[in-house]
């Protein structure tokens, strides 16, 4: 087996050699060249570990390849197969469910909590904020283990509490297809709400107090103040949060993978898990690459639409 030359990152060393050889030239030009030197490590890595893989991925997506030997060119057959692959569509449906859920439940919940934390003269604000943020700091494998433990259908804490409170606790959280989806969604809610809250809270703290006072003088009640002052002022934060959430939830992997392995059956399988399974468990690397390209297109288009709609990225 031949190994291609090792990609190496060695940003400014080459420049420095030039610097030593011709100090006057470098000193004369360093101010103009410095920014390029400073950003060059990123673009080197960008090229090697992003652009090249995208190119290779596009090529692989048109081949059949089990990882050994030469990929065999099959044109667009992988894409055609994906269109008729019911597992793939299941994963698309599940992922859409996760995305819709995070956008419609997790994001508003985070805004609500931020609003509560922004109450005037609240004691312990930092402690609450910190505690709510904690789930995202903990390794997902740890979190998934804990959830497996407390959502256990026979002896879990959740069923125990339900039993104690309502006298019925026989929910098969991880074994029933519908409940398994609910459990994954609960995990997402638990893990990400506190994280998003801090963005909204920072946004709320930046809303000028005079706006609220002016609205109050106009006779606006709390609900109208929220719609007419808070929401418009939060637009940049909301845009940031919405786009981030959209892009990251579209690639959701850890929660369903660790909690349910995509099961029972394929009821919690996500697109990223589908790609992982095809590529690294079934050795269909070309097929996995094709699914990856499709995911990219969808995320890119939706991301762009969302950015348009929310006017993100336009500076000033």
């Amino acid at each position: 087996m031949t190994s291609p030359p090792t990609p190496r990152t060695r940003p400014p060393t080459g420049r420095r050699a030039v610097d030593a050889a011709a100090p006057s030239w470098w000193l004369r030009h360093q101010r103009a060249l410095a920014p390029y030197v400073f950003i060059s490590p990123f673009y080197l890595l960008y090229g090697l570990f992003l652009l090249v893989p995208i190119g290779v991925g596009l090529y692989l997506s048109c081949t059949e390849w089990a990882g050994l030997g030469t990929p065999r060119w099959v044109g667009l057959r992988n894409y055609q197969d994906l269109m008729t692959d019911s597992s793939f569509w299941t994963s698309v449906r599940n992922t859409s469910l996760y995305v819709v859920f995070t956008m419609c439940v997790v994001v508003p919940a985070a805004l609500l909590i931020a609003q509560a934390l922004n109450a005037r003269g609240l004691r312990g604000r930092d402690m609450f904020r910190l505690a709510y943020f904690m789930p995202v700091v903990i390794s997902p494998i740890v979190v998934a283990l804990v959830f497996g433990l407390i959502f256990d259908n026979e002896f879990g804490l959740v069923n125990g509490l339900l039993e104690a409170a309502f006298g019925f606790g026989g929910v098969d959280w991880l074994g029933d297809p519908a409940w398994a989806r609910v459990t994954v969604v609960i995990l997402v809610l638990w893990r990400w709400t506190g994280y998003l809250t801090i963005f909204f809270l920072a946004g709320l703290q930046n809303v000028p107090k005079e706006l609220y006072e002016a609205a109050a003088i106009d006779g606006a009640g709390p609900v109208r103040r929220f719609w007419e002052v808070t929401l418009p002022s939060l637009r940049p934060v909301t845009a940031f949060v919405a786009v981030t959430v959209l892009i990251s939830t579209a690639q959701i992997f850890e929660e369903p993978f660790l909690l349910t392995q995509g099961g029972p059956g394929e009821s919690t399988l996500s697109v990223a898990m589908f790609i992982f399974r095809a590529g690294f468990q079934r050795q269909q690397l070309g097929y996995a690459a094709a699914a990856g390209v499709l995911l990219f297109l969808v995320v890119f288009i939706f991301g762009l639409l969302a950015m348009r709609a929310l006017k993100v990225g336009r500076e000033q």
Partner: peptide, 8 residues
Amino acid sequence: PFAVIVVP
């Protein structure tokens, strides 16, 4: 998405 570049 990470899933796009993961295989290549």
